[in-house]
Design a binder for these strands. Structure first.
Lengths: 334, 334
DNA sequence: ACATCGGATATTAGCGCTAAAACTAGAGAG
DNA sequence: CTCTCTAGTTTTAGCGCTAATATCCGATGT
């Protein structure tokens, strides 16, 4: 099938020969041009151009000990997501997009993996680290006490977390400022004169659930708070609830379901009652009544994650955590 | 900061010494155990276990010439997507999820990249290939005549395409059987006794647009076909249209907008008129009137793409293209 | 004039692994 | 009793790059 074996790829040596310098000089032109005199840089660059030379990734990684790749371990469970978490797709798109783009600009790649059936995420990290396959790892959905963070800190391996880490951990993270963002929503509602609020919370121990709720209660201390484990439960509750003038959901899906339940009762959302969500998932603006919500700036967060990862790689292990506010997006629902 | 330099990672040599064999034997136990006698395998495995040895990725790649990574070049443009293409997030989630999982099972990783500002996708391929950073490339959104496919074929570099390639190209692809799937939708509508159909088409030269339309017209030759460049245009048209009994959209977003326009006119979707979409995007089941649509089995497609990529890598360059049908999902809208 | 210094480049020596070739027996054939 | 032959193993030789060190050379100081 393949016509000829061994076309022998062009290497630094070829470039060096053509430019009349040593291989090391070529390497320096590529990696630390300031070490090389201007005329030599020109000559070498010309030779590189002429031969169309591009350095071999594996060789570079082996020799230098850095792979120029950051690892993104992901749980991508089967189809459950579409029912459970319609926003997940948008989340992935924004985060991955931002990360890949930021990485590309700095000459890095993003290595996406997932634990194989039955294996833990830690085992996956172990492999990535031992194989020296990535220079840093991005940890998602961090918990206040998180064994993954513990593991990585203890191994002194560079990482960044999306989600604040607990006080006992290293503080290399970026997170949504859920509390402040929810305060923003609350203040907007207050400014429209609403008073009787119901807060629809997710029934989960994920940190953001509590953070958002705390933010809301700061502005509406007397709000009624209800937790739900499923969209159906939310719908059932809203369908029966006596008439508050605001439903504040801690996520967009709950808000959508609430709006539907209200519309079924003939209540006009945005007039008779206000409804807000959180996330600004892709369909929020295309709903029957476009949803007022807080937009999580995923691309900015991703960029920020990457920058911190870079710093970690270069040895700066004392970066403080960073909170990013999700700006309010006012549409017709509130 | 770092306490001690040079902990010197454990290497094949360490394992070899402990097991009392040569480095090559250790390598063989890892990569081709059938070449090694059973007792030796045991001894070596025990030594590996004891030392917690894991092979260095870069060294392996450099020496063997294969990286055990497949490349996934992606365009992840800034926020435009949420307005333009709310399904993109779900698309990414399904495809990436399937790919990463399939790859992980076979010991492969997925390298996600994007062309840097101003650079072409081809230039990106060039880098990936020259750097020997990936063993195969997954090409998305293939067009009938596609210079990316041309480039990869000509370079004889392993690839798989999502989307059928033109007859002049190599046929290593997996695609949705848009025509047959749309015929499925049409037959379902026919079986409910509907007759007067309007087909809402995307105004684009993407191959699936024509394929789906062709499928529909096979069953409803007399259908009215209209093309639209924006959701607003769809809404405006449907708001004015005289009463057909079916609106068939070639994508879910159009279907959603159409349903909304109909509801505004007081028309009950699913009874007075049927509406269908295509894709089964994450929110299709959570709409006011859950949407009847065709579900693109992204995870299966991704698995299939990966399998083909593997075959390509191992030199089998004569795989035929493969069509995957998107099964009909009947909900209340039709 | 001669030691000194520092910028630019060259040499050396691997990084950790595996392909390929070269050895070992011990089994079976003549 | 020598001569294959083969399964199992070791030896040799890089893969292509860069860290670390050595070398060169002209400019500077006294």
């Amino acid at each position: 099938m393949a016509e000829q074996r061994k076309p022998r790829r062009t290497t630094v040596a070829d470039v060096a020969r053509l430019a009349g310098v040593s291989a090391m000089t070529v390497s320096n032109v590529l990696n630390a041009p300031h070490r090389v005199s201007e005329p030599t840089v020109q000559t070498v660059r010309a030779a590189i151009e002429e031969l169309g030379y591009m350095p071999n990734h594996a060789a570079r990684a082996l020799s230098s000990g850095r792979s120029q790749v950051i690892g993104l371990p992901l749980y991508l469970e089967d189809d459950t997501f579409s029912e459970q978490n319609p926003g997940l797709g948008g989340f992935l798109h924004g985060l991955l997009g931002g990360l890949v783009k930021a990485a590309a600009i700095s000459g890095y790649g993003v290595h996406v993996t997932t634990p194989t059936e039955g294996a833990t995420e830690i085992a996956l990290y172990e492999r990535l680290i031992a194989a020296r396959q990535v220079d840093a790892i991005v940890v998602l959905e961090t918990m206040p006490k998180d064994e993954r963070i513990e593991f990585l800190s203890q191994r002194r391996f560079p990482f960044v977390a999306f989600g604040r880490t607990g006080p006992q951990h290293r503080q290399c993270w970026v997170d949504v400022d859920n509390e402040t963002s929810m305060v923003g929503i609350a203040q907007h509602l207050r400014s429209t004169g609403r008073e009787r609020a119901v807060y629809l919370a997710t029934d989960s121990a994920l940190p953001w659930v509590h953070q958002r709720q705390a933010g809301f209660l700061r502005e509406f201390p007397s709000a009624v708070v209800r937790s739900f484990g499923s969209l159906e439960a939310v719908a059932a509750y809203v369908a029966e609830a006596d008439r508050p003038d605001v439903f504040v959901a801690d996520n967009d899906a709950y808000a959508v379901v609430a709006m539907r339940a209200l519309q079924r009762r003939g209540i006009t959302v945005g007039e008779d009652v206000a409804v807000t969500g959180f996330n600004d998932f892709p369909f929020a603006s295309m709903l029957d009544t476009p949803l007022t919500t807080a937009r999580i700036p995923l691309r900015d967060i991703a960029r920020c994650l990457f920058e911190r990862a870079l710093r970690e790689i270069s040895g700066d292990t004392d970066q403080p955590g960073r909170l990013v506010t999700a700006p309010l997006v006012v549409r017709s629902s509130a």
